[in-house]
Design a protein around this nucleic acid. Structure first.
Lengths: 197, 197
DNA sequence: GTTTAAATCAAACATTTGTTTAATTTTGCA
DNA sequence: TGCAAAATTAAACAAATGTTTGATTTAAAC
């Protein structure tokens, strides 16, 4: 699953052969069918494994009643950035898969995750408005698209960003820190000025 | 090229066979190699054809000195949305391809387009700041990522957005109009409150 | 230590893949 | 009309694909 995840994220599902996966994992070709049933089901296993953990964390964080709504928003932003940075391969797969599989088991899994996230954030923003913390009306669906879209875009096109901002001399680790910080500051300021007059 | 563009956007490059393309186009299988050389080169032809027109329009619009900087920004937002809406297939391919081909001829083509756009927008924002129209400091690279990322994300995940916002009863045309408007309003307000105090 | 099930393997399977070939048809021009 | 170049075709090509098979090894239980 680890090997497959990396290869899928680099070359796409169709661009990766089961032989590639088997070789990278150091196992016999036949074992993939033996254990997962098929290449498709291997993909679903990866997806299931990753997305299980995705929503739990979010749910917990948003339930914390000690934080102000704005703090929660900022927390949400950072945790989405971190999640993507920690699981770049999986998120890359998700971005790619969203382009294709609207229908099928994959599409249903994605919809489930997205709907859950949407409801949580919706609730959070309504809460902030009720409390009087957020004074501006806001398009929640679009705001989510901006959060997810901006992070996705930067992290899926890291290479180009690095070229254009002349950051080639940074190490991989330094560069990751750099974009994490940039994204965090940018998105927080964006949300703040969109939610508060 | 038309047929290939549609199929590539739906199933990805590796998910599309030259036989699929030939059948959809109503031509013989061998003609693709005959005219384009290879499947890869067919892709490059599509890319070349589309990206040629991409920057020209932008250049022209931004040179117009009668508009205020804010008007230009708004114009830029709308023209990017429209470009994506008019050429959804091609843009889908670009989004997917950005995930994969950092190197290779495709990657170079993408970098060229991106760099050009970056320079133009950079210039535009600096101009607005000089004129005193834009009073807030701004991270231009991030702001571009937000523009492109938000549009890309909404339009590549239209299907999910439609489900979550309960817009299933709209016709395809109505739905397109709906998201165009939503995106336009949202991004303009986002840019405005990021550029002006 | 024997037995039984699970794990692992090399080999083979039938399709599908992108590309090429060589023959045929169509076209444009003298 | 005749002819050469271009366009189109069906067939074949070798390589790669996902999956299965049947034999062999390993592990665990009694």
């Amino acid at each position: 699953m680890e090997s497959a995840e990396i290869l899928f994220s680099e070359n796409g599902f169709d661009g990766t052969s089961v032989r590639d996966i088997a070789e990278k994992a150091g196992v016999n070709l036949a074992m993939i069918s033996y254990y997962f049933g098929s290449k498709e089901k291997l993909m679903e296993s990866i997806f299931h494994y990753r997305s299980e953990r995705l929503t739990d964390q979010l749910n917990q964080m948003l339930r914390d009643s000690l934080m102000s709504s704005m703090e929660k928003i900022n927390n949400l932003i950072d945790s989405y950035i971190d999640k993507f940075l920690q699981q770049t391969c999986f998120h890359r797969i998700m971005v790619r898969e969203q382009l294709t599989n609207a229908k099928g088991p994959m599409g249903e899994m994605i919809l489930k995750v997205k709907t859950n996230n949407y409801n949580l954030i919706n609730q959070l923003i309504k809460e902030g408005q009720k409390r009087g913390e957020f004074t501006k009306p806001i398009d929640i669906g679009m705001m989510m698209a901006t959060l997810i879209g901006t992070v996705n875009h930067i992290l899926s096109t890291q290479h180009y960003y690095r070229d254009m901002e002349n950051l080639q001399d940074l190490s991989e680790e330094q560069f990751r820190k750099h974009i994490r910080k940039k994204l965090s500051v940018h998105l927080k300021s964006l949300f703040k000025s969109s939610l508060i007059h």
